[in-house]
Simulated scan of single mutants.
Amino acid sequence: MLYKLNLEHILFLDIETVPQEPDFSKLNEVGQELWGQKTQYQRKDEISAEDFYQRAGIWAEFGKIICISVGYFTFKGETRNFRVTSFHGDEVHLLKQFKQLLKEHFNQAKHLLCAHNGKEFDFPYIARRMVIHGINLPYKLDLFGKKPWEVPHLDTMELWKFGDYKHFTSLKLMAHVLGVPSPKEDMDGSMVREVYYKDNDLDRIVSYCELDVITTAQVFLKLRNEELLADAEIKKV
């Protein structure tokens, strides 16, 4: 079935998130209490809610999206290209830009969204942040009433599970074992908060996010046993 999908109908994406505030002390009293309650089972006994706040970007209730990068295939004769672009900065603005992209170019039943661990993180995170900001959900993220086989989402990590529910594989590991060349990254996901709040270097985060989109597309090609993208086929727009 995977081989029958038209690559031009798939939008690959990745998001980068950070805590809503630079540090725990910026939260009001209610926010601090709710954060402690939300994370009490994830934290070890010796880790306080304040110390754990650096991981707040993982939760849509306490984090925010600072970048959504997307990529899509185009074919013209024998020429294949993978076009990559990003929405970043103000969260409301980037969410509306992303929604507009879906509305104008990926709004048909044949269109699919694809991300690594997207079903557990990227897709629900985007949807929750849209609801929080009062943005009506686009069709591709509104799953109410849809049957499992009607959900227009692909997840490279889920595809790699082959039915093994307990199996988690990072994008970096999956790319490594499948022989996808590792991009020269100067950061990893654990550094995003510091690069955003301390270094104030959003451009660096955007570049990192775009590399993950490209890697996700490369992994997807390997799952279809197809030739990887060459550097010349990747276009940033």
Results as ranks from 00 to 15, higher is better:
Lys38Glu: 11
Cys67Ser: 14
Trp59Glu: 13
Asn81Tyr: 09
His93Arg: 10
Phe73Lys: 06
Ser69Ile: 05
Asp45Gln: 11
Ile58Leu: 13
Trp35Asp: 03
Tyr41His: 11
Ile68Lys: 06
Gly57Glu: 06
Thr74Val: 02
Asp51Phe: 10
Thr85Leu: 15
Lys64Gly: 10
Lys64Pro: 01
Asp90His: 14
Thr74Glu: 14
His88Lys: 05
Thr79Asp: 12
Val70Pro: 00
Tyr41Cys: 02
Gln37Ser: 04
Arg43Gly: 03
Tyr53Pro: 13
Tyr72Leu: 03
Ile68Asp: 00
Gly71Gln: 07
Gln42Leu: 15
Gln42Cys: 08
Gln40Ile: 05
Gly36Ser: 06
Arg43Lys: 14
Lys64Ile: 01
Arg43Ala: 02
Ser69Gln: 07
Thr79Gly: 01
Gly77Thr: 09
Ile47Leu: 06
Thr85Asn: 04
Ser48Tyr: 02
Ile65Lys: 01
Leu94Asp: 00
Lys76Phe: 15
Ser69Leu: 02
Gln42Arg: 08
Asp51Tyr: 09
Trp59Leu: 10
Ala49Gly: 03
Asp51Glu: 09
Arg80Met: 15
Arg43Ile: 07
Arg55Val: 00
Gly57Trp: 04
Gly57Asp: 01
Tyr72Asn: 03
Val84Leu: 07
His88Asp: 04
Glu91Gln: 14
Gly36Ala: 02
Lys76Ile: 13
Gly63Pro: 05
Val70Arg: 00
Ser69His: 05
Thr79Val: 15
Gly57His: 11
Phe87Leu: 03
Lys64Tyr: 07
Ile47Lys: 07
Ile58Gly: 02
His93Pro: 00
Gly63Glu: 05
Tyr72Asp: 04
Glu91Ala: 06
Ile65Gln: 02
Glu61Ile: 01
Phe73His: 14
His93Ser: 11
Trp35His: 13
Val84Lys: 04
Val70Ser: 06
Thr39Gln: 03
Ile58Thr: 04
Ile47Pro: 03
Asn81Gly: 10
Tyr41Ala: 06
Glu50Phe: 09
Gln54Pro: 00
Ile47Cys: 05
Glu50Ser: 13
Ile47Thr: 10
Gly36Met: 07
Phe75Gly: 02
Ile47Val: 13
His93Ile: 04
Trp59Gln: 01
Phe75Ser: 13
Ala49Met: 08
Ile68Leu: 05
Lys64His: 03
Val70Gly: 08
Phe75Ala: 02
Tyr41Asp: 09
Arg83Val: 12
Phe73Thr: 03
Ile68Glu: 06
Gly77Phe: 11
Arg80Ala: 06
Gly89Tyr: 15
Gly77Val: 10
